Structures are given as C-alpha cells and as structure tokens.
Simulated scan of single mutants.
Amino acid sequence: MSTDFGMKDRKALDLSGKVVVIVGGGQMPGPGLGNGRATAILAARHGAEVVAADRNLAAAQETVDVITAEGGKGYAVAADVSDKEGCQKIFDATMSRSGRLDGMVYSVAVNPPFDPVANSMTTEDFNYGIDVNMLGCYYCNLFAAQCMEKNEGDTTGSIVNISSIASIKNELGLNIGILPYALGKAGLNYITELTAAEFAAAGIRANTLMLGPINSVLGNHDSQTLFGLAPDEVEETYLEVVKLKMGRGTVWETAYAAVYLLADESRFMTGQQIRLDGGATLIR
C-alpha cells in the first residue's frame, strides 16, 4: 500500500492485499453481534482476506459465510487459545494457506463461572481464565509477529489486542468473579507494550484497544449470568458510567477502531492503550 497520505484519491483504511487473522472471529450464541465477528466483517469490507479463528468452528464459519456472501474473502480455523499449541495452529494454517500475515486482532475473553455467595471459583476455572485472557494473547502476539517478520517494506504488520477498562478501573473490590478477566486483561495490556518494543525494528506495530461498555453479545450475556442483571438492567447499569447522550458503544465502533489500527494510516502508532469507553474511566 502507498503511504502517501496526501494523495487526493487515496482510499482510506484500505486493507486490500492484506491477510488479517481475527482470533475470536466466531462468537457465542445469543442476540446481537460480538466484537470479533464485527471486526472480521468490516476488515473484509475494507479489502482484507480474513482468517476467522475460534474454538467453535461452526461459529467462525458463520462469520466467513457473511463475508463471502458480501463478496469478500475469508476462511475459518478451529483453535483453542487456552494452550500454546492451539495458538500455533492458527498461524501455521494461515501461512500454509495464505502465505503471509499482515494483521492480527486478539478479540477473545472469558469470565469463568463462580459462586457469588461464597465468592469462590475452582482453581481449574481460574487458571482457564488466565490462559485465555492473557497467555493466549502472549502466544498469539509472538506467533503473529514471527510471521509478520517475513514481510517486506517499512510497515510489515499490525497487532491489535482487545482489552477492557476492567484492567485499570476497579469497582467490584475483591470479587473472584471478575478477577481472571481483569488480571488477564491487565496482563494483555503489558504484553502489547512488550510486543511493540520487541518487534518495532521489524516494522511491526502492536496496540491495545481498551473497551468500555460495548453492546456486545458477550458483554450482555456475562452481565446477566455473572451478576444476575435482567436485560433491561444491563442497559441501565451501563448508562450509569457512560454520560454521553448516545449511550453505549456498538461492536461496529470497536470494529472501525480496530480497522484503523490495522491500516497503514496508523503506521506511526504503536505500544498505545486506546480507550473506547464513552468516558467511563473519567469517572473515579
């Protein structure tokens, strides 16, 4: 892509010719869309060949079906990011089929089940939360960057890690239900900075997109199942911390922010934590 940003007829956020992996490109069942699926669809609309990776192959294929129905390019890969081998599988499959990698979005999160009365969680569930929310990010960043190092040019790849304001804003105290998620995302923030520093000389960028109250299928599901909120209470609770007139953000706003970070227009941005939170972290 040309980085002559002053060209009169330049197509903004053009991902043509780029191969982009969306880790978490499927989504859990439920009404609405997830951040991963929306980002995959939008990246394809901007010209990328999209690799939708998810432990649920059927869900990832549903995302690909939307992409191909719109005339885009993509394929699905089944992988469980809770272990190193599962992460490696994503990038082996991508390089085998596409021959290169230009972008990676880590859009995976899990809130393990817990007992809200006893405020307890099994060790296995706690470890699984850390494995998915943090260690999976570490391995996907590493393997993605190793693939991107093979690319030529001044800007050779972009990594976007989806975090949460839960990693920096504590309102629940010592609540075991949120701990593996919040700790995992805090680790993800730091992993992004380490990745950006380690691979900068190779032209690889890494940034964190830190989300606040987004109207996503996962956010709505976990708000109800973890904290016992009714569907209408979820919206009311979120609006207590988002003072903007338009209310909660949408998964499409997440997707547009991610596509900007994947595109060459953001070539001078790396190692940053960008808050897409409706100003929620302004309220202390």
Rank of each mutant, 00 (worst) to 15 (best):
69 A>N: 10
130 I>G: 03
217 V>I: 15
24 G>A: 07
66 V>R: 04
143 F>M: 02
101 L>H: 03
5 F>E: 13
119 N>E: 11
260 Y>N: 04
119 N>L: 05
151 N>A: 12
221 H>G: 07
44 A>S: 13
280 A>M: 05
94 T>P: 00
215 N>R: 14
247 G>T: 11
186 A>Q: 08
4 D>E: 15
104 M>L: 07
86 G>S: 03
232 D>Y: 01
138 Y>T: 04
24 G>K: 08
239 L>H: 13
167 S>L: 04
119 N>T: 13
171 E>R: 09
131 D>S: 14
3 T>P: 00
196 A>T: 12
225 T>L: 07
63 T>A: 09
170 N>S: 13
227 F>H: 13
136 G>H: 10
146 Q>E: 15
147 C>Y: 05
34 G>W: 01
85 E>Y: 01
164 S>P: 00
236 E>A: 15
151 N>M: 05
165 I>R: 04
208 T>S: 09
50 V>I: 15
244 L>S: 02
165 I>K: 00
81 V>Q: 12
228 G>L: 05
122 T>Y: 11
134 M>R: 10
159 I>M: 00
73 K>W: 00
74 G>H: 08
226 L>G: 06
195 T>H: 01
98 S>M: 01
57 L>Q: 05
56 N>A: 09
187 G>A: 02
126 F>R: 02
106 Y>C: 03
74 G>N: 09
41 I>Y: 06
117 V>A: 10
205 R>D: 13
96 S>E: 15
114 F>T: 06
45 R>L: 00
118 A>T: 14
172 L>W: 12
67 I>H: 01
257 A>G: 06
78 A>R: 11
279 G>Q: 04
174 L>T: 15
284 R>E: 03
21 V>C: 13
198 E>I: 08
102 D>C: 05
180 P>R: 07
61 Q>L: 01
14 D>Y: 06
268 F>C: 03
240 E>G: 12
250 T>E: 15
11 K>A: 10
227 F>I: 13
53 A>M: 11
67 I>W: 02
63 T>S: 11
184 G>K: 07
157 G>I: 11
39 T>G: 04
